[in-house]
Amino acid sequence: MNDNKNNNRIELRGVTVQLGDRVVLEGMDLAVPEGKVTAVMGPSGSGKTTVLKAITGQVPISAGEIRVGDVFVNQLSARKLNDMRRNIGMLLQNGALFTDLTSFDNVALPLREHTRLPETLIRKVVLTKLHAVGLRGAAELYPRELSGGMNRRIALARALALDPNIMLYDEPFTGLDPISMGAAVRLIRQINDVLGITSVVVTHDVTEVPRFADYCYIISDRKVVAQGTPAELENIDDGVVHQFIQGLPDGPVPFHYPAPDYTRDLLERH
């Protein structure tokens, strides 16, 4: 397996994902360089989140292979898959905190479940993680008592609890106000650099990407349509990429859902 070792921490090769009759990803190639922040962008419904779910083994792939470190996700047994997941921290769309646990217990859960640390040490670790996201003061509060942005930061602390070497973020900026957004962008960058881990950020927030990403992929219609550094992407002369980066309502990705001819539809008698 070591011959696969290169600078890429995660590699997808020819990955096809099919959910029921619907093909979500088709022959996708994607590489995530070690120690970098990689952004995966694309319009809604283009399969961005599925990329993350395929990496963590939550959705089965019907063709191709996915390498994470030196293991192939699609060949792992349930136990090995769990071992791999312990090294991956994932921030889900709305944080997905456990609503019946306090912030403290949420962050402590993976530690209590997967380590045999004494409670005094767990307390120290949890408070450190909460401090890192600036919410040590909210340790005893329940998720419902915190704002959406704070919930996501607690979830980030939870994802970091076991010191993962890969962080995956699923739409970390959705619904954040500009201040929280700024904080989130900075946190993602800092966590990546300070802890020396590899990050993948799935987002459709084009404007923020240059502030944290080292490398970008743009996905549309089940496959990668463009890749490069944020600066390179600005200059790519591709219809979809151009439309996406510029945020144009109509273009290769149509504004209208496929429909019969407008005039004829209106005039037709029923």
Binding site: M90, N94, F98, T99, E113
Partner: peptide, 17 residues
């Protein structure tokens, strides 16, 4: 049902729980 809707079940899965 709400745990499912808010991805709490996914979160458990991802924490290898």
């Amino acid at each position: 049902g709400l745990m499912k809707a808010t991805e709490q079940l996914d979160a458990l899965d991802l924490m290898a729980i």
